[in-house]
């Protein structure tokens, strides 16, 4: 491995939504320091889709969780949507998470809520949406379910949905509050080829229409072409991909 590469495309005027510089991260495991990320530098600009690849254990999930404010940074600098997360407080992290959309490998839908109510949870975390009242939130949540092709299943409970349908509800929950930053961990893993394609198209529209940034971890070769940029992580170091 040579000197770290700074993954910054040229000719951009806007401020990046993600600005990582010289970020190191290590886990404490039974009293031992286990380094996972080394000297990461990465900027992601509005409207950009970045795909993060790398073998398992390369630290890509750790990086993704740090970008979403699920972990505070230990050293270096981590600026997400304008807030610095170096040694950040819990409240700073919680406030940031409200502006970020998450799609997890497991759908993690609440089993006792309908698809619509699960999507609405993504809105209820915002006081601005709460103040608009339930009918407005329901309308918005239903519109998102329609976009992922589940408008007719809005009243169904997760137990009565297929794996792919549950994943699409989870995607609708992540997108419903129009996040400026979307982070996704294998979003198409549970989907067939066609719905995987639909989801990627949806991401593209989100990036183009709202100038949101999207960072995706994926092994799915079929969707690599949707990325503006592919970055490769190897043993905790960033390598600019093809």
């Amino acid at each position: 491995m040579g000197a770290p590469l700074v993954a910054t495309p040229d000719g951009r005027a806007e401020a990046p939504l993600i600005e990582v510089s010289h970020l190191d991260h290590a886990f404490e495991d039974a009293g031992q320091r286990k380094p996972v990320l080394h000297d990461i530098c990465l900027s992601v600009f509005p409207g950009e889709i970045v795909i993060l690849t790398g073998p398992s254990g390369s630290g890509k999930t750790t990086l993704l969780t740090m970008l979403g404010g699920l972990r505070a940074a230990q050293s270096g600098s981590l600026r997400i949507l304008g807030s610095e997360l170096l040694q950040a407080q819990k409240s700073t992290l919680t406030a940031l998470r409200r502006q970020v959309g998450f799609i997890f490998q497991a759908h993690n839908l609440l089993p006792y809520l309908t698809a619509l109510a699960n999507v609405r949870l993504g809105l209820e975390v915002q006081t601005a949406w709460l103040d608009q009242g339930q009918p407005a939130m329901d309308a918005c949540a239903l519109a998102l379910l329609e976009q992922v092709g589940l408008g007719a299943r809005s009243g169904a409970y997760p137990a009565n949905l297929s794996g792919g349908q549950k994943q699409r509800v989870a995607i609708a929950r992540a997108l419903v509050a129009r996040p400026r930053l979307l982070l996704a961990d294998e979003p198409t893993a549970a989907l067939d080829k066609e719905s995987g394609r639909d989801v990627v198209d949806l991401f593209r529209h989100l990036a183009d229409d709202t100038q949101a940034s999207i960072v995706m971890v994926t092994h799915d070769n079929k969707i690599l072409d949707s990325a503006d940029r592919i970055v490769h992580l190897d043993d905790g170091r960033l390598v600019e991909g093809s």
Binding site: R98, F104, A106, N108, L121
Partner: peptide, 14 residues
């Protein structure tokens, strides 16, 4: 429901 509660925390519920 641990993963579901973790999800709630991840999407910004304190």
């Amino acid at each position: 429901h641990l993963p579901e509660y973790a999800t709630l925390k991840a999407i910004g519920y304190d």
